[in-house]
Design a protein around this nucleic acid. Structure first.
Lengths: 242, 242
DNA sequence: AAATTAAACGTCAAATTAACGATTATTAAT
DNA sequence: ATTAATAATCGTTAATTTGACGTTTAATTT
């Protein structure tokens, strides 16, 4: 048995495989939840839609590779990035066996640098209108959505998607898109306010109503401090997840 | 830039690396929460304690490799096994770059087949008395503990560690070890009963008290059906999850 | 000035929670 | 028969959280 650690002195008789990183990049523009995809410009699966990915470099960590790939596509650094899972089915890449470590990112689309991404033929898609993807990328996206729903029910990660200035109706809109559910407006405001995470600004956004909605910013310190708290924004999330 | 997907036709100029799986195996014998470790019989790090691991075979999935390794060490199949995370720091293995995908397993120690494990010099350690491990295995174990604490606060995964027949005091004991905290006995019983997951047997365990505690078994169907429910066994888990 | 729109605030009864106190049951040891 | 020891049950409380709804407010459009 070649995989038996007891009888191995070196690793010489083991298979080496490619290791890649794929990023599921979620974005919000204050209105719609979107996902960033690229059209592959090379074989295999040329001209098909795909997640942004790449191989892990010689001296790179997995997190480092994910950060690099995200930066190459969006021009952004210091973005919320979390490892989703590793995918390693032997047939997942038809050219050569490749283990892929998937990461998901949450970004504010307004900070996205479009000029950098042009060379990758990147495009934003509404979360419910995204095309079918190559290999097992559809599965990765599904699992990423599930993870976000799970996590956002308990922790304030969706704030990572919001613009620096945002309104509470915008925030509620995002939650409604993530959970595909209508949320009671009065209860939502109460919960958001009770977290004490937001700082109310004097300025208003008048684009969506006559009265206008106050802008808020995130109190970053409180956000970091309370991130692990179980906020329970979403009542009975188990009814909505998956 | 060699990692640029745009200018690649094949994958030929990419680095191939070893991919391994490491298993954090938690066990409970009805009394103590333990972890199963092996003493490495080969270089590097010969005679040091380590997680049970192995390389992913040519035609194996990651999950498949984890199942195989778990079976080799414990003789067990159909055990709770969940991917924890992938670890890929370039220096994590001194011999050659190896990306490791860590899995954690939860087993009932009573079903553990000791004769199979003998060849690996495996040993159970109390969770708080485990020795220091090779490479980044200490870190993996810490993250696995964290994950279990997180998950067990919301879902009934700790039942996976229980013997077929167990008592409520045993169950409470396990929760107290996992969270390193004293749990109110009256509230705990009330919550456990309200989940409706347990079937009370007529037999009693008299080993730990004069009166004896009733044995229970898990109602597997209800367990599966309610696994995703948020049970809230642990009040304010954020104070306990580090 | 009235109408319109959605934002923001308020109310309430029901349910759930954690933190306790007290009691009863069972059986081995004395 | 009494004591000791743990298991199990029952009950109480105040505080908090819940969901469901009604009402008011602010600013723009007409």
């Amino acid at each position: 048995m070649t995989n038996d650690p007891l009888h191995m002195i070196t690793y010489s008789d083991q298979v080496r495989v490619l290791v890649a990183v794929d990023c599921i990049i979620f974005g919000f523009d204050g209105d719609q939840l979107q996902i960033l995809l690229i059209k592959r410009g090379f074989q295999p699966a040329k001209d098909q839609w795909s997640l942004m990915g790449g191989f892990v470099g010689k001296k790179e960590t997995l997190d480092g590779a994910a950060e690099r790939i995200l930066f190459e596509l969006t021009g952004l650094k210091d973005v919320y990035l979390e490892q989703l899972s590793a995918y390693g089915s032997p047939e997942r890449d038809p050219i050569e066996r490749t283990v892929s470590v998937a990461y998901f990112a949450l970004i504010d689309i307004n900070t996205y640098k479009t000029q950098i991404s042009d060379r990758y033929h990147a495009e934003w898609f509404l979360i419910n209108e995204a095309p079918s993807l190559i290999f097992d990328h559809n599965n990765m996206v599904e699992e990423a959505k599930k993870r976000i729903r799970y996590k956002a029910a308990l922790h304030p990660i969706l704030f990572e998607l919001m613009p620096t200035k945002f309104t509470i109706p915008q925030l509620q809109n995002l939650y409604e898109q993530v959970y595909n559910a209508k949320i009671d407006n009065r209860n939502f405001i109460r919960k958001v306010n009770s977290t004490d995470l937001l700082i109310k600004l004097t300025e208003k956004d008048k684009s969506s109503s006559k009265r206008g909605a106050f802008y808020y910013t995130l109190d970053k310190n409180k956000y970091k401090a309370k991130f692990q708290s179980f906020l329970n924004f979403i009542p009975n999330p188990e009814n909505l997840i998956s």
